[in-house]
Design a protein around this nucleic acid. Structure first.
Lengths: 348, 348
DNA sequence: TTGTAAGCGTTATCAC
DNA sequence: GTGATAACGCTTACAA
């Protein structure tokens, strides 16, 4: 018995111990303990082995099994920042779906650094994950190519690469944006400002596309002085962008449609600072429905993404991929829900 | 070559392939590729092997190594609900600390079900995690005993068992509560109500203890009609508890000190509903400093827990435990920060 | 400094 | 229905 064994392996009972105690061969024990093969063993032996295994306190060693079967029952999940509130519900949904099949999630927090993403993928690949979920996919993403190279079952979630080279599950961003524009139009708004997000991400693009589509449909032409882009969709950026729009002077927009809730919060603050009341003077909409969005002042009218459902479907898709890697590649869009609160006023 | 190999193992280059190509033995390659042993190999060989490994696209197989070394470089993290905003920053901190050493986190979302916690631990143990972080520890917790049984390096975070049987890193809950009570006392409040949390958790207990201590120190005796307990620290429970306090009639408390922010939000809503302005008529304090707490109406005066730092120290402690399982067991308390905003008024 | 050989715990394959 | 055997890819005494 060497040092390693003493450290923690000592006394650990293994399949061969159970076999010895039960007077059967190790392969028999293995078959008893495996859902797929225990049907081929006689009931009496099954009972005896199970009982003895329990009695001995046998715990399966998934890493040994994994070495043999080339499958670890573990899926990687790479995010920019787990502290960003959009990820936890997705993660929860993924776990919910995978957990049913006994799979577990190995987390990787990349912190917006592409090299970190690559490093994490490397570490996960070394651990022989069965598949990986990417919440970081850019429109064209070397990490996605890497996954393809490894022929690693991969699903993109929330964001997706421009070319449909991998499966993905996303919020229907364009739809949500169309619906919220339709809403403000139906409330009588005509001069509609828009603060758009980064165009390097599928979400930013889809939302802008949805905005444009809804404007056209309503026969409205966006005033270019009232269209702004932010590099990072943050409170600060929203504040600055909204400030710039208001500084353009008359005619002022009656509503600012924002790419997300944080930008909307920034915009509300900017309005307030310049003496405009929201929604009295200017209405503002968000997107995402972050926690507590309904408790802000004013409660934010926004688009609720069903993130946990998105995560759940991602997990399901991963499961499908794992059992049949040749199935067709698809993009799944989950319909968001318009969430009406008080930050949009009707105008006459 | 069997089916499994074809599935994904096919073409994977292994240490023996590198060895063959480099004209050395596999053990030499192994030594070159391991940080601890590559110093023992001649520089020329190191260079050649490294180059060839790279050229062949060699990727280490951590599961094979793990089987041999009995160590997976993976740490489990079990939480109640990853969607509860206190966990992501902790997770981030843990990852930050562990990542430096190349370790990764395997997540387990238990959903408040003790059986689920046990099941997750089982799955993690099967995967031979090197250690586990428990964010779910109750005062007396069978799961903790289980970890001890497995002699699995274990660290409790945020909550901790009553007996110091395992290492833990927690917020200094009592201190934060004392400070916030000191604050309201210094603002002139004397009739101080308190909505306390569940007493089955170390956090709930510590906060109540802090409240009592600060009251005594100030020479104040809590009015028992103004002391309430909630089973779940939620907005709804806070609403109900605050409502009950207000229904007690005169004399009304001038401030309600709440066990956490959600309860405080519920309390604010309850006050408003009964026609009391916060902080005009009644001041209210929270605890936790959840995201956007500063954007509520009114912005919440609360206690900010340095959760990421707590997570980081948890990771560090795990690392220490992993390199020396015999070190002394300790409780580490991280000092929170009083966060003054507008939900507490000075009274004359 | 490098090679030899055994072994980590499991399961797949083949035989009976 | 069960047993024997080899193999998964790596690390590590021990030997040279």
């Amino acid at each position: 018995m060497n040092k390693l064994q003493r450290d923690r392996g000592a006394g650990r009972v293994k399949i061969s111990d159970v076999a010895k105690a039960a007077g059967v061969h190790t392969s028999t024990v293995s078959r008893v303990l495996n859902a797929k093969t225990f049907g081929r063993i006689s009931p009496e032996v099954v009972d005896r082995v199970v009982e003895i295994a329990r009695g001995l306190g046998y715990r399966p060693n998934a890493v040994a099994a994994g070495l043999r079967t080339n499958s670890t029952g573990t899926v990687g999940f790479i995010v920019h920042d787990i502290d960003d509130p959009i990820y936890p519900p997705i993660l929860k949904g993924i776990e919910e779906a995978l957990g049913e099949s006994g799979l577990m999630v190995l987390l990787g927090n990349a912190g917006y650094a592409p090299e970190a993403e690559a490093e994490l993928l490397e570490r996960m690949a070394a651990r022989r994950i069965d598949g990986v979920v990417l919440a970081t996919a850019r429109l064209r993403d070397p990490l996605v190519d890497r996954c393809l190279d490894y022929s690693l079952p991969t699903v993109a979630v929330v964001r997706r690469p421009e070319l449909t080279v991998i499966n993905s599950v996303v919020n229907d961003c364009a739809l949500g944006m169309r619906e919220i524009v339709d809403l403000v139009v139906s409330y009588g708004h005509r001069d509609i400002a828009h603060i758009a997000g980064p165009q390097g991400l599928s979400t930013g693009r889809a939302r802008l596309r949805g905005f444009s589509a809804a404007m056209s449909k309503a026969g409205l032409v966006p005033d270019l002085r009232h269209l702004r882009f932010v590099d990072q969709p943050t409170i600060e950026a929203g504040h600055a962008a909204a400030g710039a729009i208001l500084d353009e002077g008359e005619p002022r927009p009656s509503v600012i449609v924002c790419v997300n809730d944080l930008v909307a919060i920034g915009a509300i603050n900017a309005c307030r600072k310049k003496g405009f009341d929201c929604p009295g003077d200017i209405s503002i909409t968000g997107y995402n429905d972050i926690p507590l969005a309904g408790l802000l002042n004013p409660p934010l009218t926004t688009v609720h993404m069903r993130l946990q459902e998105i995560g759940r479907r991602t997990g399901l898709r991963m499961l499908a991929l794992l059992s049949d890697n040749n199935s067709e590649i698809a993009v799944e869009r989950v319909r968001p829900e318009l969430t009406l609160r008080q930050s949009v006023a009707r105008i006459s």
